[in-house]
Simulated assay, not measured.
Amino acid sequence: MESSPLLLWFDLTGVFFFALSGNLLAARKDIDITGGLVLGLLAGLGGGIIRDVLLGVTPLALARPVYLIPPVVAAVAVYLIGPMVHRVSTLIVVFDAAGLGLFCTFGAARALDHGMPVASAIGLGVVTAVGGGLMRDVVANEMPAVFSGSNLYVVPAATGAGLAVAAVETGTWGPITATALAAFVVAFRLIAWWQQWRVPLQMRGWTVRDLEVLRRRERSVYGRPARGGDGDDAGEAPGPGGRR
Rank of each mutant, 00 (worst) to 15 (best):
V94Y: 14
Y67R: 09
S89M: 10
L42K: 03
V85T: 03
C104F: 04
S89P: 04
V53N: 10
S89E: 13
G56R: 14
A61H: 06
V53S: 10
P71T: 02
A61C: 08
L80Q: 13
G99C: 02
V73R: 07
A43I: 01
L54W: 10
V88E: 06
P71H: 05
A77K: 06
V88G: 02
P59S: 12
A74F: 11
L54H: 10
V85M: 12
R51T: 06
G82K: 02
G48S: 12
L54C: 12
A75Q: 07
I92M: 06
L68S: 12
T90L: 13
G44K: 00
F95Q: 00
L80Y: 12
A63C: 09
I69D: 10
L62W: 14
G46L: 04
A97N: 03
V53Y: 15
A61W: 09
R51C: 06
V93R: 03
G82L: 10
T58I: 13
L55V: 08
T90H: 11
T58V: 15
G44V: 03
V76Q: 07
V93W: 04
R87H: 07
I49Y: 05
G101L: 00
G101N: 01
G99K: 01
L100R: 00
G44H: 11
L68T: 03
R51D: 03
P65N: 05
A77N: 10
I92D: 01
T105H: 01
L60H: 11
T105S: 05
L100Y: 03
L45W: 11
A98G: 04
A77D: 10
L62D: 14
Y67F: 15
V88L: 11
G82M: 07
G99L: 05
G47I: 08
G101I: 00
I49C: 02
I92C: 04
F103M: 09
R87E: 01
D96S: 06
F95I: 00
L62F: 15
G46S: 08
V85Y: 05
V66P: 14
L68H: 08
P70C: 04
I49V: 15
L68D: 09
V76G: 12
G48E: 00
G101E: 00
